[in-house]
């Protein structure tokens, strides 16, 4: 069974890629690692006339750190991100999520930016990037703009990208002070599987041990990966106690809006949001102690 037919181009710059994308107005697709696009084409969901590869754009696979931030280029693979020392040091939830996305082979091909742009509700790297307040640097023929990841997802397979726009890189601010974060994935059928629930949680602690800032993001339980804002609000200023954790977990579950599909039922997913949120918070707490 062959893939549908298309024309292929390999622009040398992002600007050129954006121009091509704009020129074909919805009939072109960007390919980075290709693992999602080829799957979509194989299933007859994606039928682009033109496929624009980012493979020849110099530096697109870079993972670059400055004193204040880390930039993950559009072609940086899941494996490269997972193994990057700075990612492991400052963004452990992302390192963990990237390391459990797909299989070894897929992680050697697929990119983090691609995982986000595919906008699957179950994308492993989405909830970690949400808790790190990731920003997407978006390139268009006219220039660049920045979109907060929380504003980026618009529905299953839908993003804030408009005509001629593509993601150049993801920017993460390096944390200041003490923060703890982790990613919890539940895939009961197999260790190698799509998450039926994914939860990431970040806690920044003050010197007294109170929570200065909290981020909780939930995946696979709504049309988009999203933050559990009410649950986050409950945590700020609190000391973590078992009661607080339980209450926060219950609220996070309420903020989920899951569906039943062939992988899991709605109520199981909702219930697991509470379990995974609690585990994520407890792990943060353990690491803090």
């Amino acid at each position: 069974m062959s893939l549908p037919k298309f024309t292929y181009c390999e622009p040398k710059t992002l600007e050129e890629a954006a121009l091509k994308l704009a020129e074909y107005d919805g009939r072109a697709r960007i390919v980075a690692g290709g693992t999602d696009l080829l799957l979509g084409m194989r299933r007859g969901i994606a039928k682009p006339e033109v496929v624009i590869s980012l493979a020849r754009i110099a530096g697109a696979n870079a993972i670059v750190a400055s004193a204040t931030e880390l930039r993950i280029g559009a072609m940086a693979t899941l494996a490269e991100v997972a193994q990057h020392p700075l990612v492991q040091q400052h963004f452990p939830a992302l390192a963990c999520a990237a390391a459990v996305t797909g299989t070894v082979q897929i992680r050697n091909m697929g990119t983090v930016v691609g995982n986000i742009c595919n906008a699957s509700p179950s994308a492993d790297t989405a909830t970690p990037l949400l808790i790190y307040d990731a920003k997407m640097i978006v390139v268009a023929p006219g220039g660049e703009r920045t979109v907060a990841l929380a504003e980026f997802f618009r529905g299953p397979g839908k993003t804030a990208l408009t005509q001629g726009e593509l993601v150049k890189e993801i920017v993460l601010k390096l944390p200041s002070g003490t923060t703890r974060s982790n990613y919890q994935k539940l895939s009961p059928r197999s260790k190698v599987d799509i998450a039926i629930v994914g939860v990431s949680a970040l806690l920044a602690f003050s010197e007294t041990g109170a929570i200065r800032r909290a981020r909780i993001a939930i995946g696979s339980v709504a049309p988009v990966p999203k933050r559990a804002l009410e649950a986050e609000n409950m945590l700020e200023g609190c000391q973590l106690t078992p009661e607080v954790i339980a209450a926060v977990a219950a609220v996070a579950a309420k903020e989920a809006a899951p569906i039943t599909d062939m992988r899991a039922s709605e109520d199981y997913r909702r219930s697991m949001v509470a379990v995974l949120t609690r585990r994520a918070l407890q792990q943060n707490q353990r690491e803090q102690q």
Partner: peptide, 21 residues
């Protein structure tokens, strides 16, 4: 890209060659 039967090494890295143009 799920079964690995098509695994090859590209510049030393393992990939699923059914998911690569």
């Amino acid at each position: 890209g799920d079964c690995g039967a098509c695994t090859v090494l590209i510049d030393g890295k393992s990939v699923a060659s059914c998911m690569m143009l």
